[in-house]
Design a protein around this nucleic acid. Structure first.
Lengths: 238, 238
DNA sequence: ACCTGAACACCGTTCAAGT
DNA sequence: ACCTGAACACCGTTCAAGT
């Protein structure tokens, strides 16, 4: 309370304390993830993040090579936060389910950065583990190398798709207008001529809202697993 | 060849002829689609397109409300170019296949703009027709309203996913470096410890290259249809 | 109706310089 | 090691003005 040696320095430090933790690579990535989830990925800029830390834009370049590398690091961070359990011994295609559930669960916690995951998942440790396990399950189900790779990719992409394409997502739009945008889209469908578009008119509501995300994700995973199971069943016959 | 009234005007027109067709909303959208497909969506900017037309950036604002509207129009253009056939009378889930084939086929011709389609498909006529038909088929297969909507969305999104997520896609990266980037990704997987990542090492090649896109798309559509068929089969039993 | 000029508030990034 | 200042080449967009 008393020993202020230099008011200027103290003020600076106080301001920084208000603005959050000290600048560091980790802190920058964390902040970027936060901004992406709350305001959309488009809101993430070097200058904006710098401002949040009360620092010059060029200061970030010490901790991060450039914006592309920051985006990649954001994707990596999300993937590496997935808790991938050990693959249970021998077993069926059902072993894919927990993998997808955990991946989707984590992505849903970072909708703003989910699209980044798509390009990074095979380049970072946790994603590689995930892919290795999926490939193993698919191999044991009898899929050849080509099919195995295709289906493993499809699995990871389905997870990404479920989250970015969820009925209420539209992560690019900041929260405030999101509801309104959704409603206007719904109204446009509901206003279609009912004789030519009976289904769309009837399903207008269900197309844009998702009152139970958990059920939606579970259904999406079911759909993927059902497809893989059916393809596996055809392996002998064709 | 003779009656030049004003050399300045003639030169201007000649220069414009070199730069392409006259400025118009249609021409702007066409040009933007072209740039997106060749250099990635990030290369599409108001100023860049204006430059291609040898015109001031502000000139574009006469033909297009703003950049967002331009992007939306690009998506609409791609969707409305899909040739949607009439839905054949009563029949099974197999009727979804031609719908998906035509959609995927068109998207594959515009990989740079495919991600735009995701947000516009339910707002433009051809996309609405596509959705209506998909919903009809799903309804006739016995899916309730909620499931119908989910699966129709999944169908459209799977098409988008197949194209943007195709092994060699990476549409954001301009052609030149694309091959190199793919190769470096492959090498990274191939260099993994073979005892912990046997599958990934083995499938490294198949994960990043796609020597037969047609087969890849067909497999993706098969996977989706197999999933839907299986879910339909479960409808009575659960 | 259609386009330009000037201006504003944003970007990412480099490079030399400070501490 | 870590940060700043100045500068550059880009963005989207508005507004008044030209033809």
């Amino acid at each position: 309370m008393v020993a202020r040696t230099n008011s200027r320095t103290v003020d600076r430090k106080a301001a920084k304390a208000d603005a959050g933790p000290a600048l560091s690579r980790e802190a920058v990535i964390d902040r970027a993830l936060d901004v992406a989830d709350r305001e959309g990925l488009a809101a993430v800029s070097i200058r904006r993040i710098a401002q949040d830390f009360d620092v010059t834009p060029m200061a970030l370049y010490w901790h991060v090579k450039n914006k592309d590398e920051l985006l990649a690091a954001m994707g990596d961070r999300v993937i590496d936060a997935v808790d991938v359990p050990d693959l249970p011994g021998p077993g069926g295609l059902g072993r894919l389910r927990p993998l997808l559930q955990r991946l989707v669960g984590m992505l849903a916690r970072h909708p703003g950065s989910t699209e980044l995951v798509q390009y990074r998942i095979l380049q970072c440790p946790r994603g590689q583990l995930l892919a290795e396990q999926a490939l193993t399950v698919l191999a044991e189900a009898g899929f050849d190398q080509q099919r195995r790779a295709e289906l493993a990719r499809a699995a990871l992409q389905s997870a990404v798709m479920l989250v970015v394409g969820a009925p209420g997502a539209e992560v690019s739009v900041p929260e405030p207008d999101r509801q309104a945008l959704r409603e206007s889209k719904r109204a446009a469908l509901a206003a279609l001529p009912a004789d030519r578009f009976p289904q769309l008119v009837q399903c207008a509501g269900a197309m844009f809202e998702c009152d139970d995300p958990e059920a939606y994700y579970a259904d999406g995973i079911d759909l993927f697993l059902a497809g893989v199971a059916t393809l596996a069943g055809r392996l002998g016959t064709s």
